[in-house]
Design a protein around this nucleic acid. Structure first.
Lengths: 143, 143
DNA sequence: TCGAATTCTATGCCTTTTCATATAATCGGC
DNA sequence: GCCGATTATATGAAAAGGCATAGAATTCGA
């Protein structure tokens, strides 16, 4: 007997997400990074500094939680915090050299992990799913 | 400039999942249920009792966390706990009458919310995405 | 049927998150 | 330029979660 959740979009997304990221989580352990820390570093790895609020929206963490996470990461030397000169309410978060060193090998592993997860799908299928996920995001953002 | 995460499957899944369930979360607030409580009740709503471990796997919560959540929910009268007679290591969790009353309107709302999220996709697209998500789950389960 | 190995849940300690709100800076209209 | 409204972040107390492990029941092989 199928349960309610078995056909429920929200559940399928949560389950697929949990499965994929839990598998990768195991690869994270040796580096000592938690999942939230990894997400922050991965997000900051290829861009410039972001404000607390902007970063929180991207990494799917609430603002007060990110404020605390960022300050722990700053204490650990993974990121650097600075007040935005243009808008002094803002705190900018930037990846540090040491954060960059920590995240570099993980980015490679993450890409490899994704390839494994998707290895049996065609490029067209992968593109289709990603497009639908992006579209779901875009749509709900503007609602 | 696209960030690393923008094309990263794990992120797209997490983001889509977060977006969809956060929207629904707002509808959950009046009932006083947290997302984990809602998931437990929705899972138990259409089936029989489940053991702590089986339920934890379904609702994507770790076992010690679920042990604590279930006991809070039992204290709140939403579920009932009982030792499994057939295997006395097991604790069975069953939805109570009051839990059922609490979850019934939410199940309707959840279905409506899902329809809204997916309203602009064709039936074929929806089926395709759900199939791929289920396949991702099936595959990683057996690895 | 005995005992080691396995499975299932509970627990304790510590870390992290949440919720509500305070504080600080900026914006907009006058 | 000033003031109320808005936006951005920080903070504090309480709740929840994570990890390691203990305890209890079951299983399986000899």
């Amino acid at each position: 007997m199928p349960r309610f959740v078995d056909d429920y979009l929200s559940y399928l997304l949560a389950a697929a997400s949990a499965r994929v990221s839990t598998e990768f989580h195991a690869q994270l352990r040796p580096s000592g990074l938690s999942v939230p820390k990894w997400r922050v570093l991965a997000t900051l790895s290829d861009g410039d500094a972001l404000s607390i609020g902007a970063l929180a929206r991207i990494v799917l963490i609430q603002q007060p939680t990110l404020t605390k996470l960022a300050s722990r990461m700053a204490r650990a030397g993974l990121v650097e915090l600075a007040t935005d000169g243009a808008d002094r309410r803002r705190t900018l978060v930037r990846i540090s050299a040491s954060g960059r060193r920590a995240v570099r090998p993980l980015l490679r592993r993450a890409k490899a992990h994704e390839r494994r997860c998707l290895s049996s799908y065609s490029a067209a299928e992968i593109a289709k799913v990603k497009a639908i996920l992006r579209e779901l995001l875009r749509r709900s953002r503007t609602q």
